[in-house]
Every structure is written in C-alpha cells, then in structure tokens.
Design a protein around this nucleic acid. Sequence first.
RNA 1: AGGCCCGUAGCUCAGUUGGUUAGAGCGCUACGUUGACAUCGUAGAGGUCAGCGGUUCGAAUCCGCUCGGGCCUACCA
Length: 891
Amino acid sequence: MAFSKHFEHQERETEIYRKWEDSGAFRADAASEKPPFTISMPPPNATGTLHLGHAIMLVLEDLMIRWRRMAGDEALWVPGSDHAAIATESVVIRLLQKEGIADPRGTFGREGLVERIAEYVEKSRGTIRSQVRGMGSSCDWSRERYTMDPQLSRCVAEVFGKMFRDGLIYRGARIVNWDPGLQTTISDDEIDHVEQSDAKFYTLRYGPFLIGTSRPETKLGDTAVAVHPDDERYKDFVGKSFEIAWPKGPTIHVRVVADEAVDPEFGTGALGVTPAHSQTDFEIAERHGLPLIPIIGEDGRMTAAAGPYAGMTVLECRKAFVADLDEAGLVAEVKTYPQRLSICYRSKQAIEPLIKAQWFIDVNKPAVPWKGKLMSLRQVLRDVVESGDIQLVPRHEEKTYFHWIDNLRDWCISRQIWWGHRIPVWYRGEQEVYVGHRGPEGQGWTQDSDTLDTWFSSALWTWSTLVDPELAKNQDIGLTDLLAQSPDFQKFHSTSVMETGYDILFFWVARMILMTTYATGAVPFRTVYLHGLILDRDGEKMTKSKPETSIDPLDTIRDLGADPLRISMVIGNSAGTDFRLSPERLEAGKHLVNKLWNAAKLVERTIQGEGAETDAVSAAATHPVNRWMVARAHQLIDTVDGRLAAWAFGDAAEQIRSSFWGDFCDVYLETVKVPELAGLPETRAVALHVFDIYLRLFHPFIPFVTEEIWEQLGRPGLLIRAGWPKASLHEAWPEDVGGVDAVMRMIVSLRRIRSEARIEPKATVAASVRVFAYADTVKACEPIVRKLANLESFEWLAADAVLPSGAVTAADPAFLVAVDLGEANREAERDRLRKELEEAERRLANVGKRLANEQFVRNAKPEIVEGARAEEREIQSLKGTLEERLRELGG
RNA sequence: AGGCCCGUAGCUCAGUUGGUUAGAGCGCUACGUUGACAUCGUAGAGGUCAGCGGUUCGAAUCCGCUCGGGCCUACCA
C-alpha cells in the first residue's frame, strides 16, 4: 500500500475511530482475568460544547487507558454526562426567556419545565458525544451513563436514606447562602469572592457604642452588640440591654454580650450582631440565645421588619438608611475599605446569607464505621489520604486538601430548583416523615419540593455507574447486595485513577471520597491526578473576545487533526500546573505528526525485501549501528515506563519525541541510507522492529496517525490492541553503543570543522583519524562517516604517524580526527588547541580535586566515584592527545 | 489573616531520591536542501538556575530569610 503525501486526518480519523469501535477494543470485560484498570470520565456538563478543559481531560485519560490496555490490563473507561442541576436549569430558563416566555416556571409548571430541560439535555448530550469521539477517546460507549439514569437515581435516593438513618443527614434552620437571582441556596464551595476595593466602611453611633459595618442596612435586624470578654472599654456594658430607635424606625432591642469571636483590635471593638444575615453573628446568637430578626427576604428585598424600608432592595435600603442616619448625625465616619463580596460562581450574583430550613450533611458526627472505628465523615476524608489509600498527584495538593477539611462545615445539600434529584422525603401532616427510595404507601403524602445539590449525585459517580441496570430494577435488593451482585462494580471498583482539574478538587473529588467511602466502604479511586488550567499564550484564561490567542479544540481538530492537538497538550504539561497552549505549540505538534508520517514513508521503503519480519533478527543484529539503534529503543521503553509510572506524561511524551526525532530520524534513518548498511537484511528487520516500538510508544499520545501507519505498513491487527513494548535489549552490546556514540561525535566534529572553515556542503574533503577506543566499531562504521561527513578519503593513522602541519583537528577521548586545510590554518589551530587544553586541564583539576577528597571517596555512592574516575581517565587521555598535537605544531 | 505553588536561555517550560560540562520546544545567527519531511537538515550563539545566608565532600535541587509573581481558603463585622 502506498502512503499518501500527508496524513489525511479529516478523512481518516473518523474511519479509524469507527474501526476501533467496531473491533470492540473499547469494551471492557467484567469476566476477564486481567487486572482491572478503571477510569470514570468526569461527566462533562450536558450544556455546552467541548472546550479545552474537556480536551485536556480526555487526552490524559485516553492516554492512560490506551497505555494500560496495551500493557495488558482490562481497561475500562466509563463515559457519561451530568445533569448539572443549576447550570442546566438556568441555561434553559434563559433560552426560554429569549424565546419570549418571561416566566418559564410559572408558564410550564414543575413537570413541564423539567420535561423541556430533559429535551434540551438529550440534544446537547449528542453533541458532546460526537466531540468526545472526535478527540479519539477510547471509552466504553456500551457503558455510557447519565446521572439521571434510573439505577443512578436509585443510588442517590438509597444513599440519602442510609445517611438519614445514620443521622448523617439532618434538616435544620441555619444560615445558608442564598442566591436571590437563582432563587436557591448554594453550598459554601459554590461561592466566589470578588475583591471590592471601593467598598465603604461605616462607623455608626449605635446607642452608647460606636460600631463599624460595611452593611449598614443589616443593622435594622440587630439583636445584640458583641464585645470581647477581656475588653476593658466595654466591661461594664456586658449583660445590659438598650433600645435603639432608628431615625425613621424601626426600634431594635439589643443586648450586650461578651464573645471570643470579636476582635477587639478591629474597628471600635464592638460588633453589631445581625443573627439572621451573617454566619458569624448567627453563631454568636446561638451561643447567647439571642433572637433572630430576618429583615432581608428571599427576593433580595427588605421585609416588613425593616419598617419604612420594606420592599426596597438591599442596595436601595443601604442608600436610604445611611442618608437617614446621616441626617440624624449618627454616621461618625465613612471610609473606603477593601472588602470581599461573596458571589455565586454560576450566576455571579451577590449572595445573601439568610436563615432557611434546609437539608445538611453532618460532617462531624462519628457515625461512619471505618477501619474498625466509628469516624466522622471529616475524619474519614482525612484518613484515606493520610494513610495512603488515596494518593494525590501532585503530592502537594494533599496539603490543600487537608486545609479544606480543616475548614469544612456541614454541607447544605438541598436546592430550590426543579432540575435534579428530588429529595426522597415525604411529609404527611405536621408529624409524619417518610424517607426512602421507594416512596411512601398510603394517601396524603407530599414530597419535599427541593432537589439535591448536583454534587451529591456526582459524588457517587465512580460506583453508581457500575451498578447493574437490570439488577437495580429489583427494588427488593438493598444497596449492599446491589453492589455485591453487580459484576462491573465487583471487577472495576475502586477505580484506578481519577483525573480531573485541580479547580474541582473540593467540589467533586473530596465529595466523591466522602460519599463513596461512606456508602460502599471502599475508596472511590486509588490515585487522583490533577491537571492544571489551560491558558492562552499570555497565561490568561482563553476567551472568545481574544480570538488571536483563543484556541478552539473543534477548530483545531478540523484543521490539524486530533493528534496534533493531543500531543501539543501533553508535551510540557505536568500535574497540577497551569498550561499555556499557543498556536506555536500546536504548530510543533503538527510537525511531529508530520515527521512521523514521513518517517513511515522512508521506513516502508527501507524495509522492502527479505528479512524485515522478525524481532529475532533484530536481537541477533551484528552491525554496530543496528545494535545501537535497538539498544536505544529499548532504553527508551525503559525510560518511558518509568516516566509513565510516575505520572509524568509530558515527560514521557517528550522522551519519545526526542528519541524518535534525534536517534531514529536524524541518526539512524540517515545512517541506513548508506549502501553498506542498507543492503543488510538485518537492517530491514531492525528498522521495522524499532519503528514498531516507536509506533506503540506513541500510540497513547497520537492514536490516529499511529494506527494508520500501523495498517499501511501491514502490521498485524489493530495497534490499539497491540501489546506495550518490553525493554529487553537495552543493556546489550555496550561496546557497540559506546562505539557508535563515538562515531556520531566523530561525524559532528568533522562537520564542525567543515562548517567553521566554510567548506561548501557539497565539497568533499580528505580526513584522517587516529582511534584510541572502539576501533572495531569505528572501522565497521567507516562508510557511514565517509557519507555523513562527505569525505573524499578517510585515512587511518598509525599511532606514530605525524599529522600534516596544516591539519585542523578535533580531539575526543576516543579519537583524533583531522582535515588538512593547509598551512594558513596553523595559527588558528594552535590557538584552538591551547584553549581546549586549558579547558581539559581545568576539568582535570576539578575532577582530581574531587577524587583527592577523602570525604568524597568515602561518602559518595560507589557508582558516582567510579564515574569520576572514568572521567579523569578520559580527560587525561584527551589532554595527552592535545599536548601531542601541540608538540607536532611546535608548541 | 492563614495556606499552597512558582521564580532556570529572548519566550514557554522540563530538570525524578543533592553528584559537578543545566536540557527541550519556539525564537535567533550562518550555511544548505525539488526524491521521507505543508519542510527538513547541519553548525552555532544564548543561562552568576531571583537575591542573601546555611547544611554538605558536593546545592538549580535540602533548610532559613528577603524580594517578585500567581492561586486557594476564611466568620475581622
């Protein structure tokens, strides 16, 4: 089969993907004897199209899966998507509003709206699916899951019930983060903080106190003033009560309480306590039994309790209230003070802390049986990482993780939106409550109207996806048995690696650890690989508004192919670090794929003829260059295995790239063009054997082009199912390897002499050589040196032969090469030799000093000392050569 | 306020448990190239590894401090 001029990615990629899929290579077998290797694909939101955040995730996971599959594991990559509750609902509502439906909730009602959202999701899931395919992702589509699949929904309800029974889920009225725009609570982790440098800080006259606040309007709901217990200034006030009549009403009653939470150094040291609208104040109020007065409603407007300000928005009220205070002379000071405003990470709206009865997960109750003890969820979270059950890559993310745990509070899991898993709780009358996945029997029950935080269901993802869908239809089997009898769960859980962005370590990773370890008694995954953000060339987030630096994966796949995109995103990328993807990088990726394609063409030509069949021929190769190439390739396998095992994917890819380009293309393929080598049957075998290794090593990174070449070269079967290469010959033939390295240095030396002397590349020159080591190898490689250095003649000098006085030389521990360029070069030659001699002496002194140091010889590892001795011998010999040559030139 | 990370060539970054001539890609200089190469090749220039101090036979690497940059968390109202 003839290779086309270029790899036609547009036609071939789809075709190749279909071939993989049809072959069943993506499908894992739960009955297999092979060790499992499992990755749960982080479900892309069912709302958008593929972006670079998805792309990097798909690339890294696919390369792991392909690598482990080739290495003989039963590799399972479970794809799927997430219903993404808040995100999806708000997107659809906005779409409907654009279509002219002002109030979609009111217009369609709960069921109608949910139906519309489901339709929308179904459509965008199709889009995402094909884009995931476009990246070359070798995931098991037969096991595709969706968080709203019946069996996954059942897991959600089961876990809720289990936690409720264990007392880990409770309902309570507490301060929650209310998003007045989305009309729902959100969790602590869904809040972003934006710096407000121009925020105002007011000092108000407040009865007998001066108090500071950045939110004067909340003072309408104050019920106390808190001071530090040790604060002498306010000692006499503690325990007293007083009234404050605001200029235009209302009147509030405040008690003075002493509380450790107050920082006496801040402001005036007196804090107006607004229990209904501040977390800190709420806690103070709990400690002192203070009343709560909600003054801000869920619509973000002031309530009736705010008196004349009722109905105003918070900001309107602030303005009006401050004006009134000012008029009454109650504003003592106003200054600008930098402040952090809490906003919802989705809606970007200001969060209003207020009191609301919600469902919470108790993270402190010791109710989780783990390692023979009863632990709190918080303790379990800590234990599994501390004990090494779960390893974070990079390691330092563990510190961030522990820090998060230390600050973790009860997790509010109920949301006032409609799209999602409805809370599996039913009420009848005032007293009766039913909790469970089946629903209550009898009449008159009403289900809780809230839905669960989307992360509640995502937190079960590693295993709810592995529950057998058929089995789950049987409602009589409990959760434990459901897991015990699901073949996929038994075979593939705990999963091997969770690969995702560090930005959702808390949102998702930590919650999976929390929920899964609790629910299944096993950690969700062994290793967490966290990738960084994909940024533009300038280190900023890519946005459509900067098209010159913004890269769209879909455009890239169309224009360059998936392979260049993939390799560009991997090389130079490492765990936990942000990555700048630029057009220049994509260009480099494109060149690499192109280089591989062209190398394939040359290899195809090279291997025509007998002998290009078996690896055995390679193992029996006799020519030093062939042996060198085989050894280099096997050494590379060894290196790559090490880098992959250390999760250093970027490094692994770079090693393959540089060996392929440098050793194979620049050296070997050039070398085997020399007839003496090209004519050997073993050369054909080695070229194929080694190229085969490169194809296998490259495959996880650039699967399409490697698969195509594999087929074009007539290799057996599909590359995706081929075995991972094994390093066996990397330490063979050290004499040949060292010798060929010397030959390569010899060629470079000769080229440099030519280049410096401005000799036309086409012009041949006469060279001579004196060889001190690897004589046999060098002899065998003579035709290669002649060809690659373009020599007219290559004379072997006897040890006592004198070089022509006009010779320009290059000295090496293994040889001395010379090109006669005439007397005119004599002075320059002498200067250069002197300089080199100086350098050699400097290095010799250096290594000598080291070896003379008893401490070094005693303490350093033996191989280091031996290395130093070898170095000393080498430089010594080099020095001798240089001195001798200088003597020839008369000093 | 606390925590984490980073500072290596003009740019973007590698640099495994400390081992002595610190690497790559892109860019740059010179030369060459219609038979593998939407190019590619050959040769080359370019680094006091942010600074200071310490540990060590030996430090880009470990420790401390300083300076600069980024990120995360938080109940200083």
